Amino acid sequence: MIRLQGLEKHYGKTAALSQVDLTIPQGEFLAILGPSGCGKTTLLRLLAGFMKPTAGAIRFGDTEVANSKYSSKPENRNIGMVFQSFALWPHMTVEDHIRFALRNHRFTRKRTVEEQAERITEVLQLVGMESFRKRYPAALSGGQQQRVALARAIAPEPDILLMDEPLSALDAELRISMRKEIKQIHKKLGATIIYVTHDQGEALAMADRVLVMQQGKIEQADAPETIYQRPETPFVATFVGKANLVEGTWHGDHFVPAGSQIRWRDNGVSEKLKQKQLYPVRPEEWQLLPAEADGLKGEVIISQFQGTERHYVIRVDSQDYQASQPIAASAWREGELVSLQAGAKETQYTTEKVLIELR
């Protein structure tokens, strides 16, 4: 178990992290999600031991590995790390990379030459690289190099695997394939994985729990389904899933959008959003109805065909809302007037379907 208590990191007067408190159970796959500059990589570097916190403490199990006065070195922590740049050595073959990790990781058990060979084969088979064991990095594709970096990190069987945007350099199709690989490896190994990304699709698809950060602080830490369906803050609502934040007034368990007489029921909106008089609506939660129907009156500004669905931008007064509809639904042309109603009948099904597709 990892515990972060009051963790802070300052660079001069700039706070990269501020009062971060978090507990990570053993074996959890935690994705740290946020925009550039939110502090997620700083948090990972503190966990790795590459820097010392300005305040607070980090505990691995019963051992305090870092505080404002002391930080144990990376080699003294039972961790593995996968970098964004892969960090492979050009003069080493694939199997040499794995052998190096087995010989030099402080916490790996001592193995004979034969046992090392068995472990190398086992790990390369796990990542699908056994047939490439004699190749050098220059002879490998980007996805193959990433698999080697992953194999090198997991070979010593670390308790904690730290991953810093490891898929960002790969193309879209390969990223989706590698998501599945990493998720399957996590199931087989049972190690704690802390995975930094700015890609919400990766975080929702892979993690047991998603930690959303902004400006060095934790906005929300919950299961992917909760993050998506029940965002606690305006930032989480708009960053994860691109929710539309409709302004209006809350009256008990009902919401009245500004400038209208319609009422929307409370579908689990957080207190923080209610205090700001906001109602979040995901693009797929809108119902697009004829202009004469009850709802927010707007004009279709953009209509885009996207294969299985259509994406729309609907302008209501001076506010633009994003909407998406299944391809089987009625198509709306640009310039047409529509009524927007929140809380589609199949909202629960739709959000679950989105999460399944991401996985």
Rank of each mutant, 00 (worst) to 15 (best):
D222P: 00
A149I: 05
E346K: 11
L288Y: 07
I193H: 07
I227R: 09
R265K: 15
S18K: 15
V281A: 10
A344E: 08
A117C: 01
Q146H: 08
L126I: 00
M129E: 11
H91C: 02
V210H: 00
V316E: 07
R133C: 13
K13M: 03
V236L: 10
E352H: 14
I79H: 02
D164E: 13
E292L: 06
M129W: 00
V256C: 14
L47Q: 05
R310M: 08
A139M: 14
D159K: 15
S72R: 08
P231F: 07
G307A: 11
E346M: 07
G298W: 01
G216V: 04
A139V: 01
Q125G: 15
W89D: 02
T249E: 14
R265E: 14
T192K: 02
E115M: 04
A87I: 02
V313N: 04
G61Q: 05
N244A: 04
T121C: 02
I79K: 03
K274N: 10
I194W: 01
G216Y: 01
V281M: 07
T23R: 11
L174V: 14
R147M: 10
A344R: 15
K52L: 08
S36L: 07
F100C: 02
D294I: 11
L7W: 02
V212H: 06
N78L: 06
E28D: 13
H251T: 12
D208G: 09
W332K: 13
R310S: 11
T249N: 08
Q220L: 07
Q214D: 13
P25R: 10
A207K: 11
E309I: 00
F107I: 05
G259C: 03
G295Y: 06
S339L: 06
L174D: 04
G27S: 12
S324Y: 00
E334P: 04
S330R: 15
E28M: 14
K274G: 09
M51S: 14
H97F: 06
A221K: 01
W286Y: 11
L296N: 05
L337F: 07
N78S: 09
R133W: 00
R45C: 04
G307R: 10
V212N: 09
P224K: 12
R106W: 00
L189E: 11
K69C: 02
G248I: 07
P234N: 09
D208C: 09
Y70H: 11
L355I: 14
V236W: 01
E271P: 02
P35C: 09
E95W: 03
E219N: 05
V94L: 05
Q19Y: 06
Q277R: 13
Q304I: 13
G12I: 06
P90D: 09
F29N: 06
W89V: 05
L88Y: 04
W332Y: 12
E309K: 12
A117F: 04
Q144V: 05
Y349V: 12
Q125L: 07
A205W: 06
I327H: 11
R175M: 04
Q5D: 14
E28I: 03
R77P: 01
Y312Q: 13
D21M: 03
Q341M: 12
A223C: 00
I218F: 04
G56V: 03
A323K: 08
E130A: 15
R359T: 05
L204F: 04
T249W: 03
S36D: 06
W264A: 13
